[in-house]
């Protein structure tokens, strides 16, 4: 009797905690209009749960980068609400934006590495910025760089690396602080198929270890093969959201 009640209570708590835990990302009726009147995002509703792997696809100019920028609070929506890890970005004070971004790793098509610093320094930069003690930096940086398979390039400069290697350095920098969420805006846009796949495999590994990953991409082959959740944007409108989808979808 007692044990049954105990079990039931346990189940209830389990369910509750499952419901209470906020989604990593929640967008409610989000619109973004740029200063010149361009409506980049139109009434977007989207929920991304912890541990998901999500592709965002759509033709050029469909608002994919705008979505990423809004999640980073680089730009603010014109209307609607954005919650990241349960926090309302609209209520984030200027000084809290930096703290908010520390939960998020970012990777871009153009790598965004500092050309005058070594691989080690580029990755360490992400830790210096958040005031990590030097001791931890010396431990963490070689660790993550080795996960990316670049242990022997720690002292190289970005200019001495191939595109794929540069993107792996950028990925190491994005991951060195163990972010909850990883945003990748066309991470393979400048890479050949082999390197593109390598980056995607790394992103999949990262996701398997619990990080929520959102990848904006134009790479049809990769999206089709990986069978992940796919969100289609069309001129700023959410056109389709498939649980295990491909690059194309049937219009109804």
């Amino acid at each position: 009797m007692v044990s049954i009640m105990g079990n039931r209570r346990f189940d209830l708590e389990n369910e509750l905690s499952h419901d209470i835990e906020p989604p990593v990302i929640l967008l409610e009726n989000v619109c973004k209009e740029y200063g010149d009147g361009m409506q980049a995002i139109k009434n977007l509703n989207l929920e991304v749960k912890k541990g998901e792997f999500l592709f965002v696809v759509g033709s050029s100019g469909s608002g994919k980068s705008t979505l990423i920028k809004m999640l980073l609070k680089e730009v603010s929506p014109t209307s609607g609400k954005i919650y990241v890890l349960g926090r309302d970005l609209g209520k984030l004070h200027h000084n809290a934006i930096a703290k908010h971004r520390r939960n998020i790793g970012t990777v871009f098509q153009d790598f965004r590495l500092l050309p005058d610093r070594t691989v080690f320094e580029n990755v360490a930069f992400a830790q210096r910025v958040i005031e990590t003690p030097m001791k931890k930096i010396r431990r963490d940086v070689p660790n993550i760089v080795s996960v990316m398979g670049l242990s022997d390039r720690l002292d190289a400069y970005p200019g001495e690396l191939s595109g794929g290697e540069q993107q792996r350095v950028a990925l190491a920098r994005a991951l060195v602080n163990n972010p909850v969420l990883l945003l990748a805006d066309e991470p393979t846009g400048n890479l050949d198929p082999k390197n593109s796949w390598e980056i995607m495999r790394l992103l999949e590994d990262v996701n398997r270890r619990g990080t929520t990953v959102i990848v904006v991409t134009h790479n049809r082959e990769i999206v089709d093969q990986m069978q992940k959740r796919v969100v289609h944007l069309n001129k700023g409108v959410l056109a389709n959201d498939q649980k295990k989808g491909g690059y194309s979808y049937e219009r109804y």
């Binding site: 980073l72 200027h94 000084n95 908010h100 971004r101 500092l114 992400a126 910025v129 005031e131």
Partner: peptide, 16 residues
């Protein structure tokens, strides 16, 4: 400028 925007992206405070 580039370095600063990267710093902002990875969560550097204004003070930093």
């Amino acid at each position: 400028q580039r370095e600063i925007s990267i710093m902002k992206l990875i969560g550097a405070t204004d003070h930093f």
